[in-house]
């Protein structure tokens, strides 16, 4: 038998690439955050400037609202869908495939299609709501400061709930029949089964998926960027978009890096919780 250290040779190339692409940029962000565009050391100036910018707190609250608004309904709708798809009925396979479609489709396609459907004058959504007189006059969904963020969240929910559904469904199908039988012998109704058999059994899956969704919501700026670019009047400006704009529109790399460092710190906390949660109860569900 060969030495175990041969393993290093196998994992080395991939780790080098990842190190170059992840570890190095992360370290470099730290360096950039304390220098100006010419590369001079400026201490915490960038942080001070970013924190005093009016857009920063706006973006922070928007991000929070975006993440939590999205996740709650993604998880609720996803779990309900999974329970539905866990039933035995004809055509289930087709419904399951169809459910995945919003998730598989490119985010940019979802964004443009919804933007067209939400068009103020010619959009199908306004027509659907005005025709049966649910609302009096067409709403400018994407230009009205009050509706734009909820609409973005709705699109994000539509895009991501299938992922929750499919993961939870996999968890539900791994539950052993014995548990259901026991519940049945005790005379449990369907909703009691959901409450006392299904949900506890897929709890870890739900927790893992939720944390993953938090990270993704922090990451995914496609929908918002493609539809509003953060507007109108910064109503949909979230921190990742602010970083992008600071770096590539105002060309303030130092400030963008300072913002990245703070954003990064928050994300790391979430990632840390995620890993701890996964590590603390592995394989419990199976």
């Amino acid at each position: 038998m060969q030495k175990q250290s041969t393993g290093y040779l196998f994992v080395l190339p991939a780790l080098m690439v990842l190190g170059m692409l992840i570890a190095y940029p992360v370290a470099y962000t730290g360096l950039l955050s304390v220098t100006d565009n010419a590369g001079n050391y400026v201490g915490l100036d960038n942080f001070r400037r970013v924190l005093s910018a009016r857009a920063t707190p706006t973006a922070f609250w928007n991000t929070l609202w975006w993440v939590f608004g999205s996740i709650v309904l993604q998880v609720v709708l996803g779990v309900l869908t999974a329970i539905l798809l866990n039933q035995n009925f004809r055509g289930r396979a087709i419904v399951r495939s169809v459910t995945l479609v919003p998730w598989v489709v490119p985010g940019i396609v979802a964004a443009t299609t919804w933007a067209w459907m939400l068009h103020t004058e010619f959009g199908i959504i306004n027509y659907m709501l005005t025709a049966p007189a649910l609302i009096d006059e067409p709403v400018g969904w994407l230009t009205n400061g009050r509706t734009v963020m909820p609409v973005m969240i709705a699109i994000n929910i539509w895009k991501m709930f299938p992922f929750v559904a499919i993961m939870v469904l996999a968890g539900l199908q791994a539950i052993s029949d014995d548990l259901y039988e026991a519940a049945r012998i005790d005379g449990a109704s369907f909703w009691e089964e959901v409450l006392y058999v299904m949900l506890p059994q897929v709890r870890t899956v739900i927790v893992a998926v939720t944390l993953l969704l938090v990270i993704w919501a922090l990451n995914h700026i496609t929908i918002i960027y493609a539809i509003t670019r953060g507007g109108p009047a910064n109503r949909t400006l979230i921190t990742p978009i602010q970083i992008f704009r600071t770096a590539f529109e105002s060309v303030q790399f130092g400030q963008a890096a300072a913002l990245s460092v703070m954003f990064f710190a928050v994300a790391i906390v979430v990632v840390f919780i995620y890993i701890r949660t996964l590590a603390s109860n592995p394989e419990e569900t199976r």
């Binding site: 460092v261 990064f264 994300a267």
Partner: peptide, 23 residues
């Protein structure tokens, strides 16, 4: 090393676009 790989998957991409661009 394995968790380093996992963390890579979870990193917020927006946080590293600036240094990646410079690199």
């Amino acid at each position: 090393l394995q968790s380093f790989v996992l963390v890579g998957q979870l990193l917020p991409t927006a946080a590293i676009i600036v240094p990646l661009f410079v690199t």
